[in-house]
Design a protein around this nucleic acid. Structure first.
Length: 223
DNA sequence: GCAAGGTTTGAATAGTGCCG
DNA sequence: CGGCACTATTCAAACCTTGC
């Protein structure tokens, strides 16, 4: 019954600001809506920094909990997701510092299994051959994205996959607008080159529903 | 047609590695 | 260490696209 309530609210047009207002006045369970709304986006951003699935889940959970505990500090005039992503990025960077390293592509590849950063649109109408081509293209692109430098990967993911505005990206990453523009341009150029080079067939990145539920559940139990 | 947002490009500057 | 060449990064501005 509770789940049904949350679900129906999630699909209603209820703004983040309104949800936050209600959470702050006691309806703490509504935080689940914010978590579900932002899970995919947050995953992709964190995934741009960290490769290990356990690390990613950990950072996401920590970020949500941190955000929840500081929700009263949130300024309603800015975007909730931008704020959340910024906190998550800081967490991710801190984790990288702890580990004292930045991943290199060869060591990443082995542990990447099913975390898809890209969604295939509804492809039920495709014939098997088209589906196969689509799947191959997606794998190639994911591989290419993964080989980009973190700073380019993050910008590319935010813009092309999450459809964030350049201004939001600049704010979130604390970069100038001009810088975001150039990084985006470069990331595309690099991807283009890489796509010609890539020939491996590793499966990568899927953020499935079960994972989404797991993280949501964990966060809701810990706030 | 205009404004806003996005893309592309050129120039300036900073960083890095090599050589004497 | 200093000078030089090369590469990467940043910024500014021109240009393009889209929605109204």
């Amino acid at each position: 019954m509770e789940a049904l309530h949350i679900n129906s609210l999630n699909h209603q047009i209820i703004t983040d600001a309104e949800i936050i207002r209600r959470i702050l006045s006691g309806e703490k369970e509504l935080f689940e809506i914010l978590v579900r709304r932002n899970n995919q986006k947050l995953f992709r951003v964190v995934r741009s920094y960290l490769k290990d699935e356990a690390d990613i889940a950990d950072i996401m959970q920590n970020s949500y909990i941190k955000v929840f505990t500081k929700l009263y500090q949130f300024k309603l005039e800015s975007s909730f997701s931008t704020w959340l992503i910024r906190i998550a990025i800081n967490e991710a960077l801190a984790r990288l510092m702890e580990k004292g390293k930045v991943y290199h592509i060869n060591e990443q590849s082995e542990r990447l299994n099913k975390n898809s950063i890209l969604e295939i649109p509804d492809n039920r109408q495709m014939n098997p051959q088209q589906k196969m081509i689509h799947k191959e293209a997606k794998l190639l692109l994911e591989n290419a994205i993964d080989q980009l430098d973190t700073k380019y990967r993050v910008v590319y993911m935010m813009r092309e996959v999450e459809d964030m505005s350049l201004q939001d990206i600049a704010t979130t990453l604390d970069l100038s607008l001009a810088n975001v523009k150039v990084r985006l341009h470069r990331s595309k150029a690099m991807l283009k080159n890489k796509l010609f080079e890539i020939s491996s067939d590793k499966d990568i990145f899927e953020f499935g529903n079960s994972k989404c539920d797991r993280i949501t559940e964990y966060v809701m139990q810990n706030i």
